[in-house]
């Protein structure tokens, strides 16, 4: 008999970089100890577990606002391309770079659907 836990539909991935082949199956959400507030288009993030705080510029804030556990990375990419004057390739490169940075800092968690 196995002691394994029952399978869940979603699985949280640790602090690995984003898998670019799974962008349409990867959702993002803030880590438990992170509080964020957006003011004047910019966002301040406070990591209560480390005492560090971070600021996001306008584009970073738009991305952060979609990291609620509902939108996939592909969804967020589509929002950026629809709203901003940017080449899709550049938007994706910048999005993945920012998300990887936020994951590395422990501010974001990624979850596979």
């Amino acid at each position: 008999m196995s002691d394994s836990l029952p399978a869940t539909p979603h699985s949280i991935i640790s602090d690995h970089p984003v898998d670019r082949t799974m962008l349409d199956r990867t959702v993002l959400q803030p880590s438990l100890d992170v509080q964020g507030t957006t003011m004047g288009g910019e966002t301040v993030l406070l990591d209560l577990s480390t005492g560090r705080y971070y600021t996001l510029n306008q584009l970073g804030s738009v991305i952060w606002e979609h990291c609620t556990g509902h939108s996939t990375i592909s969804d967020i990419h589509a929002v950026l391309c629809d709203r901003f004057d940017v080449a899709p390739e550049r938007a994706l490169d910048d999005l993945v770079a920012l998300v990887n940075h936020l994951i590395q800092e422990g501010l974001l968690q990624q979850e596979r659907r």
């Binding site: 600021t55 996001l56 970073g60 950026l80 004057d85 920012l98």
Partner: peptide, 17 residues
């Protein structure tokens, strides 16, 4: 009519003390 898009700037996060 073509939709007017906002200016794009690279998304940035800055870590503070």
């Amino acid at each position: 009519m073509e939709q007017k898009k906002e200016q794009y700037v690279q998304p940035v996060v800055v870590k503070h003390e």
